[in-house]
Simulated scan of single mutants.
Amino acid sequence: MIELVQTPAIAQGLRKVETRIRRLGGSSELAGINDGAGRIITAGGKRLRPAMTLAASLALGKSPDRRVITAAACVEMIHAGSLIHDDLMDGARQRRGTATLNAELGAGKALVIGDFMLARAALAAITAVSRPVAEVLAATAVELAEGQFQETNDLYDARRTRESAIRSITGKTAALFRASCLVAAVCAHASPEDRARMAAYGERFGLIFQILDDLLDLTASSRTLGKPAGNDLRQGVYSLPLLLSDADVRHLLGPGMTDEQVTEVLERLRASRMTATTLEYCRGLAADAVAALPVIHDEEIARVLYGLPTAYIDHAMELTMAS
């Protein structure tokens, strides 16, 4: 997916970000922490969030310097640390085809490594970037926790509202995309209006990102996903696409669903207007994201940021149709 935001300037910046991430992840005095953090860092993530930091910086007329590179690395460190915590909460045994840290090292060690990555990002932000950037990232970490708590609080609630689902994904996912753009605007000393515009763009894209990920969990095959389809249903996460569906499935939801019950719900959802309704909802978010962008004088970067939301939607459609 990173190809969607790839330009020579972004590619060059990402190579520097990668070096910085690895240094931060390997900066503990304890080899075990460095090894664990290194496994997560090198597990093949898209680096979409730091790429957006670089794109936002270039859009605001600032070539990514050391501070921007470090800020982008901090964003990715927070993302990686939060993935460890997600795996712990979900009891996940695999991620991206490899064993999770909690499966290999145990819950206690995995928790500490996740904490280390979050704390290391905070320390780098305050010492190597700026206090305003550190404040953005600290506030974002609060939102990540609140969004995840909101989702946990709604588990197996067949009466979950769309508004509750949106609040949850705004906190647990969209907030970090918002931060990825906002820290670039802060480093660029952008005006308050341009900071707000870049933050709004990032947040709306983050909503699209999570909603489409949730849609694929309900529509794509296990082969495409690399994990069992309908995993959210099994874990009691009733996502926005399900809530947008016109299918009569809520009476079938609940703890302890069998594989046959999950299959029945998936079949009903796929036969409904869920996919079309969800994509239409995401296109509305894409229009809002593009409308939020400030004036961008770099034509290449403008094409990247203006095109990214729609390109991501098109990519999700292709994955759904290929399943």
Rank of each mutant, 00 (worst) to 15 (best):
L24D: 02
I113Y: 02
D115S: 08
F209H: 05
V68W: 02
E264S: 12
R49C: 05
S168Y: 04
V17N: 02
L269A: 07
L30A: 15
R22F: 13
D298S: 05
T161S: 12
A43R: 10
E264N: 10
R15M: 14
A56I: 02
A200S: 15
A71C: 09
L60D: 03
D154P: 10
K172A: 10
L215Y: 06
L218Q: 09
L269E: 07
T258E: 11
A59P: 11
R283T: 00
R131H: 12
I78E: 03
A80V: 12
D87I: 09
N153S: 15
E300L: 05
S130N: 09
I69P: 00
G91P: 07
K46I: 01
A110R: 01
V136W: 05
H251R: 11
G236C: 11
G226T: 07
E76L: 07
K62V: 11
D298R: 03
L293P: 00
G202Q: 01
T219L: 11
G26R: 05
L54G: 00
A56W: 01
A73G: 05
R39H: 15
G307T: 00
G32L: 14
N34D: 12
T277R: 14
M274T: 04
R283F: 03
S222G: 15
Y238V: 10
G206L: 06
A199Y: 02
T140N: 06
D246N: 12
T7R: 00
M274Q: 07
T42Q: 14
A121E: 03
A220Q: 07
L101T: 01
L218W: 08
G106P: 04
Q6H: 15
V183K: 02
I301A: 01
I296M: 09
I166N: 08
M321W: 13
S323Q: 13
V265M: 07
A92I: 07
L252E: 07
T263C: 14
D246Q: 13
V133G: 01
L118F: 08
T224P: 14
G36P: 00
A229H: 06
G91Y: 10
K16H: 09
C181P: 04
M1F: 11
G45I: 00
R39L: 15
L144P: 01
Q210T: 06
S180Q: 08
A73R: 01
E300K: 06
M257D: 11
S27A: 13
R204M: 10
G254F: 09
L305R: 00
G44R: 12
S130M: 14
A200G: 12
A322S: 15
A188D: 04
G230A: 09
P192M: 13
P294T: 08
A110N: 03
I313Y: 02
A134D: 05
L207I: 06
I69R: 00
D115C: 09
V75E: 04
R178C: 13
V75H: 04
R22V: 15
G25Q: 03
P241T: 08
L123Y: 11
L212Y: 02
R93C: 14
